[in-house]
Design a protein around this nucleic acid. Sequence first.
DNA 1: CCGTGTGAAGCTGTTCACAGCT
DNA 2: AGCTGTGAACAGCTTCACACGG
Lengths: 222, 222
Amino acid sequence: MTFKRYIPVESISELTINRLSIYLRCLQQLEKENITTISSQELAERFHLNSAQIRKDLAYFGEFGIRGVGYNAAQLREHLVNILGLSEERRVVVVGAGNLGTALSHFSGFNSGGFKIVAVCDADPQKIGKRIPGGLTVEDAALLPTLVKERRIHIGVITVPAAAAQQVFDDLVNAGIQAILNFAPAQLKGHPEVKLKNVDLKINLELLSFFLTHAARLASIT
Amino acid sequence: MTFKRYIPVESISELTINRLSIYLRCLQQLEKENITTISSQELAERFHLNSAQIRKDLAYFGEFGIRGVGYNAAQLREHLVNILGLSEERRVVVVGAGNLGTALSHFSGFNSGGFKIVAVCDADPQKIGKRIPGGLTVEDAALLPTLVKERRIHIGVITVPAAAAQQVFDDLVNAGIQAILNFAPAQLKGHPEVKLKNVDLKINLELLSFFLTHAARLASIT
DNA sequence: CCGTGTGAAGCTGTTCACAGCT
DNA sequence: AGCTGTGAACAGCTTCACACGG
């Protein structure tokens, strides 16, 4: 939690933050292999990243390395956990108990490393009351404001159909949620004070389709 | 399929391609509302995009608009479908019949608009033979080369744990697959001739966590 | 006269290359 | 001697603003 400079968050790119998550994964793996010290160079080669970029990304938040030596893996991991705010538990509500919503509710990636799905809602009376693998029961989306308050929920995940997404987005914001992950293929509008991240899974398939159509041989850029 | 210029695909950014998918969604919605003609300005305002960017993105592929008027919605949609290669059916194999893999296999977004999951594999004998909602049965991952050939599969989706991902990636490539969507949190290496797109769902939660931690009030940038 | 298509400008993100610290 | 941290150069992406065509 000791950052060298208190740079305004808005000045740090989302790309940088995403890379911090990746660095964190890499460090976790290195620790499993009992590696204690690593240079940006080695880290870059091992996980095919760019060493200058690693150093620059980290430099936004402090001086974590030792010149002439490199970084202490455990220490750097700890710093990244703090920067990303993963030391504190984040309770999540999933709205939309369809296929995807149900799957994400018991997806290990969404129930580990600081995150925990504590509620799954739907507006469809047919779905309310249904048990979900993992132990949760689908609750009435109309109860969102209560749920958010009582279970101190920080993050909302939207997995309803596109047509219902804007309404759910508004409801989540009105219920007091500050950060929302939207899986619906809809252009949501209207709450600049809330952090909204759109993830459209189908876009990725369409991207691949584009490359299959236009490129016989093509370098992999990810 | 009549593109003004045959620009090398590599010169077009992934960002542009992703936006084309978004424009396609928007046009589909407009058609539902029986709107036949739309200007880049209107399109931008309606879906909070940038009008100059819309025009520039489209201009890579041809001149689809009418000066002084705008674009014909149906025509432009058709162009986008062709550009993205969505008129041809794309058969998909999902490797990893865990939570996420199973969910994606019957996820509507992965079984519509030109895409169709035609096989789900796993190496775990416990999972092989299990039925999946939607009609598929989990098959042995060892049969990948045969499956890919017989069902003429174009796209592979990796939903195995991180530790197994590199092996599956290699196997998919060796089986002759040209485009791969990887959901495992692993830095895959080694096949520059194949198009690889990484999607890490947890990164998105971590991004939200970062903003919750550092920003009390913050503009939504997506 | 209006909106597209597009050079040019401006901005953001990445990579280079080296000074400075250990 | 070696690697970090960082200004400066470079590359890529977005936005502006207007000439041109309908």
